[in-house]
Amino acid sequence: MSGDAAKPVRVRRKVRVVSRRRRRVENALVAYSFIAPNFLGFAVFTLGPILFAFALAFMHWDGSNPIKFAGLDNFWRLFEDRAFIAAFWNTVVYTVVSVPLTLACALGLAMLLNQKIVGRDFFRTAMFFPYVASLVAVAVVWNMIFNPEMGPVNMLLYSLGLDPKDMPGWAADRHWAMVTVILFGVWKSMGYYMVIYLAGLQGINSELYEAAGLDGANAWQKFRHVTLPQLAPTTFFVTVMLTIQSFKVFDQVYMITQGGPGTSTLVLVYHIYNEAFISWDLGYSSMIALVLFFLVLAVTVIQFRRQKED
């Protein structure tokens, strides 16, 4: 009796197990069908080339003759390559100056435009516009405005009584070229980070300000002890983003100074581009790319550590 009753039950359970497994497979297939279109493109055109880049850094290749294994040749070459050393330091200088400057400007703008003022949307849009504007178009205007001989900036300085000999040569001057590129970068991108800061500011609980007000805090103290700590995650995010953006700067340098005069504004990506597409030294250019990768990685890890400590 008991044996008879047990049999159908077991069969039914088996059927249920099979159908459950089948359903799980079906669900997984549905999920994969969602992911596949993007992932296939991503795997072929991003993941693959990334792995290839790491391998290529240890090879000699000009793109047409057979690839040869190079060991650490490309790595040692970095230390003898004056252009690389210049590019490395220029990239560091660009980053060290432009990141804090952009950050401060973006935060300042966000504080100003987070208040209730007439025409706020217009002002926000105006600040953001350089970020979306075509780089080629604004770079050529920038070059004209900062033209050392005829540009309105130097004309203005001249009419203010500055001696033409002391006039900055901007993009054409060794000492001013980097300044010009940095100023352009700050002007172009600060509006974007302002929007991120605005989003951060709107997330701060207004009760915190009321409490600080009751404790007799003035505007500066409120900023120092409420706003800044509350914005810490935003600042962290903006710093990481900005640092990565600065390490990979290229377009604006290409358009404003072409890396010159001399090597005064040569940056890492510019050097990668030259070595790859001008000299066709693909292995060495990948080694420089690897340096760029580790720079970005190091900065991101350091920032994450500091964020965790706080």
């Binding site: 992932f39 991003t46 990334i50 290839f52 290529l56 790859a276 990948s286």
Partner: peptide, 24 residues
């Protein structure tokens, strides 16, 4: 694992792999 593949490359500058991508 798949999502990690995406996250790991989100901070990777395109300039790092533009050359192999071009060769591909």
């Amino acid at each position: 694992t798949l999502f990690l593949g995406y996250i790991a490359t989100i901070a990777m500058p395109w300039q790092v792999y533009m050359v192999p991508q071009f060769l591909l």
